[in-house]
Design a protein around this nucleic acid. Structure first.
Lengths: 225, 225, 225, 225
DNA sequence: GATGAATGAGCATTCATTCAT
DNA sequence: TATGAATGAATGCTCATTCAT
């Protein structure tokens, strides 16, 4: 599969990098505060403090800016989750689920409006696979890691089970964020997600634990995730 | 919260209803086939076979068309689900879950692009509650009905549990539809959703059944649900 | 062969015709006085005294204006020549050639810069045949008419001879106009063209008259053609 | 009339000549393949493999490139024709006409799109005399040379006759090239041009030969002139 | 000399909306 | 009531040219 490069030229002089960063930051701010409707190249250039011509030296068209940003954001999310998992030095089952949920909540927590538009940009450009792949990979990594250890809870997740699990969790979080739900940041909400995570992870198994045997402990949640 | 009326005037003559219907149909078709980018009032009027002037006699502005359509669609989905539930003459627990899942799959199956834009229109206009309320009401109705009967599986669903359940299921379905996933229409996918439904419905309980005690039987799924 | 229609919509209200006429006139003036470089839709609309939006309701894009104008001009030239020929009540051979030459000189005499760009627009759009056809038709008409009468001088012009003749004459006139040659308007120049016409008309024949037998009389030329 | 120097600085080092040559070649290629619309300084510099800054050190502006190229091309055409004439070791009348026609066909045969734009550039800059002069000089040279020898067919060509002759021939060839006429390359087309040449050359005379006395023999034309 | 990042005026085109008929 | 011609602000994008490095 070809990897479409949305950039027009690679910056060779150091000052270019600052320019691109400024464009990204400006674009992000506009997307977040004004929405896609006000996301226009002239505005981006103005906010970024560069001329419209400069903007077009780095991106062939408006869409390319969206795609490039989407990829950046996606990477950040993946890295954040993986990082947060690796940070668990002794990741026993009871903490892993909560770590993943918190990483997801955090990743989806900021600049949600922007992220939503970026995701849509990828989809609209037929690049939805880029969107799905990293999330699945992360989850697969986690589950694989689990199944290697102990008796593991995540032995038998089917592909289609993984698919539904991924979307269910992201769907729940995304909705909450997009609706600016008051549940966001509550312990109860986080708990529901953790339960969902564990449940989904087991849904392929024939021999399942009862809820009261699932490995979550008394959670302590800070209001600002 | 005020209920914003997107109509400029109430249709009083039967002729008007036809006009509005034509406008809705034209708008829907454009939204579905061309996307929001080509959704403009001139095009709507042309496709609807009315003049742009007439269009503006029924809707104060472009946005009002989106809002009115969104409400209509939302109503249709609610009615469809409720209807499909009521259609179950002897709705025992094992069939209810599957009915709901199928109704949801069907409701989200057609004109997805249009529906997505309509939902976004509601959200962008600060009317997301309209979006959430009917779905929750439907689910609450179901659950209430269940809890009245027998010993019921759905006794103790907390509000926040209901919230997560709703979004998880809709999120899974919506993603599949938007990604044009090949899982759509398979028995396995439907099964996963039914399991999700039952699981979520129980997640608030302290005393939970084991999976092998959950009330689904051997499902018989036709490939085209 | 398809006839590409450069218009976006047919005017149904009478005021439209004035609008289109104004656009044509403005476009012509700009083309003539400023050249293609300054021929932009905003300028056309401004000069025409209409809004840019109105302009785009009649023409799908800038190019369409050029094409429509070119066809109009071409028609005018054809009509002028045919008209001038028909005006010769007793078109004997000696006057016919001069009539044609004068009609051509007149047709190419005004707004030359504009006409040049229009011709190029047709060519650039792969419509060069439209450019060639009418001129050839006119000449063919003349020659046919001649061959019917008397012993006619134009009996045996081959297709390729007609081709060269057409281009040679138009080329000579066009160059003179484009170079703003001082020869323009002189009797000598007109005479040379008339000779060229008669000569070319005969070039296919085996049995040719001598120059001193060619049918031109003492020409009387007005300085302003 | 002043001779406008389109160069910004004279190339002093051999390296510079290579640069200028690269710019010319790049400009020519773009003009020929993309047309004037894509003829922009950034593209020229990129194709030439030099920086835009360098380009502007050799040419004060875009137009200057066109003018310089036009002069170069014009020179080439003149030289080609003169050379081709001189190559005729014993240029008797019957071969001279054909030689000239073939030289013209060849000169106008390649990179026609480019040549057309260059010519227009000269005209647009009020330098059309540069365009006319060399062609006339060449023809005058030929005719003079002829009239010195034998009894010559070209004795009495008037200036205005020469003018019309030049434009008629070039007009016929140019049209054929620009229309990509299928006549191009055929013997018949070349023959017609040769006839035109001889005829025009005589048109000033009072005492003219009959066609069947004109000095062309059975021509042998290769399909690729 | 050479480079190429930056500039910004300029242009084509769209589309929500108005209002005279 | 219906029509549709007209409006013009808004926006994506190009490209000639400059100038700091």
């Amino acid at each position: 599969m070809q990897h479409i490069d949305p950039y027009r030229k690679k910056p060779s002089q150091p000052r270019s990098e600052g320019t691109i960063e400024a464009i990204f930051e400006a674009a992000a701010r506009i997307l977040q505060t004004q929405g896609l409707g006000r996301f226009n190249t002239n505005a981006i250039a103005r906010v970024a403090g560069v001329s419209i011509g400069t903007l077009y030296q780095y991106f062939p068209d408006k869409n390319a800016i969206l795609i490039a940003m989407a990829r950046r954001e996606l990477n950040k999310v993946s890295q954040a989750i993986i990082g947060s998992i690796n940070a668990e030095l002794t990741p026993d089952d009871s903490e892993l689920g909560r770590s993943v949920v918190r990483a997801l909540l955090k990743a989806f927590g900021g600049r949600q409006r922007m992220r939503k538009v970026l995701i849509e940009a990828l989809i609209a450009n037929g690049l939805s696979d880029e969107l799905t792949r990293p999330v699945e990979e992360v989850l697969q990594t986690i589950l694989t890691r689990q199944s290697r250890s102990q008796g593991g809870y995540f032995k038998t997740l089917t592909p289609i089970g993984l698919y539904v699990m991924t979307r269910a969790m992201i769907g729940a979080i995304r909705s909450a964020v997009m609706e600016q739900s008051s549940h966001l940041g509550t312990a109860a909400f986080e708990n529901e997600l953790v339960k969902l995570f564990f449940y989904c992870a087991h849904s392929g198994s024939d021999d399942l634990p009862r809820f009261d045997q699932l490995p979550w402990s008394t959670p302590s949640i800070d209001k600002n995730p």
